[in-house]
Design a protein around this nucleic acid. Structure first.
Lengths: 208, 208, 208, 208
DNA sequence: TATGAATGAGCCTTCATTCAT
DNA sequence: CATGAATGAAGGCTCATTCAT
């Protein structure tokens, strides 16, 4: 029971932190503000988390988890090209639907880069591996190198797309950019696939 | 002569700020730290710049200028695809050679997004237009839409590449990523150019 | 118990502020000086009071209260003239016995005039009404207009007497001044009481 | 010529200081603000006056002079009572017509009390003597003690009237207060005159 | 001489954190 | 266990004054 309360507190604080960072940035995310947003006394924050950094770390981990679990809702069968297209669109759709998380993640990534470089690198690796495993389902079994390249490019595109989206929160702009980026990536994926030995077996035309 | 000294101070402070932000982040860039890095008393900072925000703004402007003037060293003749490839590689080469500026710019962009949204958007627009004008020299005169799309994708790729580079400062990794990204963009550029009239026919063929 | 400590702190700070203002003036009453006088760290001042202005406001209110509760020690029966005489002497005696409070009140009044005009006017009104209610006990029930006039004149005389007392802290001088002022006011009070119906007949035009 | 310029500067600065103090209070009267109001470089202030206190002192002196020279425009013949009435009304009329000077003088008096007590006392004495000499023209030559008492009461009343005027800048209120105060003072003056050895020669009854 | 440039001292405030109950 | 109270350290900024030309 007691444990439960403490765990609830933990999650309240993490959720509050996500919201506060999204609204005020990491710099504006003071302990007082977070505690207030979580509806708990300031001292409780340090009762549950040893320090502010520890809280931020927990938030960062939570964010990564939530993205990993929510994002790749329904992978698909298809060529590497198809999967690349689908996954990039899906990821961006998720971010567009969760702007708070998107912004917080971006801010926290910068923070982690400075305070917990290992974590930041780790997060990148996790994202990369998640992406790669999604792509690995490509039907004409794709070459490892091609898989890796596409996965990396996808992460790069996601980051870049988010970056420019934050500047001008225009859904149409974003949609157009995502469309171009997806086509570009898909196109490059099929090119990479083509140049590898196991080519041309593609069964399905991609998407309806 | 008198004026000169003041102007020098200004630039010293701006340079010091760039360095401090690169090392400690915007959050760690305190006025005291900046003043110390510039080798001048704290009060002098406020003599030259009315407020810290004014200083950061000046730094941001300086950064944009310096990137604009340094980066497009040698534009080129060639197809849209060639130019896209060249410009992306050139831009990334510049950033790779000026990591301090790259990091500071990235941090300040986030800062500007929150404190001077107009400036941030403006900076993006400037980057976009610079890129577009570089691409406009493409020999088989490129379609306006294609030009715009490639320019936007280039900015997106640059941001994304920088992002992942900051995490793992591995020159080889970066080189490989830049290589893939450039090819991908070039390939997409030539696809767009080719299907100009029939752009909307979308993905599948994608290359002749 | 916990609450008690905080309340004590509050009062300590208020008392310290009164003392510091009396010695150094409002201008010299810095937060550091006040905290030191109260024997507590600077940060504690801002824990108890959100800002310096809030503290000064609290001091101002305290001052008004303390004067109101201490001053009219023993009202009396008698004519309006008698009461006016008694009250003026009593008020000045209180101030003479509490020079620190007198000076601080005077300084803070000027401060309030600029920063919290409403408060300043309110304080004046309170003083006025307190005075008027003291005078209202006059035996031959006094005319409302006469009551008001005497009350206002009393406040005016008190302020004027304090002003000149601050310049030359000579008890004898003050005593003599208070004596004259009291007689003058008492005399005017009886004149007003007597001529109640025909007050407006006045003396001589005195001005063209 | 050079001397002239410097003298002009001096006076500009003094005038600017009066205005600035009236608007922002002594606390808000910073050297920068004063210099700006005077339309001269900040450094010039310290070129003309050794320190800010010296400037404030000059302002204080100027104020006293200007009050002395402007106020008693036209003394009059008459009894002590008449003169008291006239002079009090005249003084208050002057202040009402010059609110800037009135406020500045009040603020500076408080300042002088703390920084140049002698000057403050001196100013009081000057005001006192000016008042006394004005009253000395009373026709039935007045007793020295009476003269002194009335002069002191007049100063006290003036200060008190100004004080309450500053709180509520209501011309009607002020006029009514001045009217009451003048009558009270005049009445007391005739009473004092009557009780002195040279009595009963009083031309006018003035009391029953 | 006159003034743009420069600065040491200090101000108010906020922060993450710890203490004491 | 939970939290109101407390605080050392630091942050951005302003001030009267002086320096250097």
């Amino acid at each position: 029971m007691l444990r439960v309360r403490a765990e609830v507190r933990r999650q309240d604080l993490v959720a509050a932190t996500v919201a506060v960072i999204a609204e005020h940035g990491v710099k504006g995310a003071t302990t007082r503000r977070i505690a207030e947003a979580a509806g708990c006394p300031l001292a409780s924050l340090h009762y549950v988390f040893h320090s502010k950094d520890e809280l931020l770390l927990a938030v960062y981990e939570t964010l990564i988890d939530s993205i990993r679990s929510d994002s790749p809702e329904a992978p698909e069968h298809g060529t590497l090209s198809d999967l690349a297209d689908f996954n990039l669109r899906a990821a961006m759709a998720w971010f567009a639907a969760n702007p708070t998380y998107a912004k917080t993640q971006s801010e926290l990534y910068t923070w982690a880069l400075r305070h917990q470089p290992d974590m930041a690198i780790g997060a990148l690796r996790i994202a990369l591996e998640g992406t790669r495993s999604n792509l690995a389902a490509a039907e004409p079994r794709a070459d490892a190198k091609a898989l890796d390249a596409i996965a990396r490019l996808m992460i790069i595109l996601i980051d870049g797309l988010l970056f420019s989206w934050f500047a001008q929160e225009d859904p149409k702009r974003l949609a157009a950019d995502v469309d171009h980026a997806s086509r570009m990536l898909a196109s490059y994926a099929s090119a990479l696939s083509a140049s590898s030995p196991t080519v041309k077996t593609a069964r399905k035309p991609a998407r309806k």
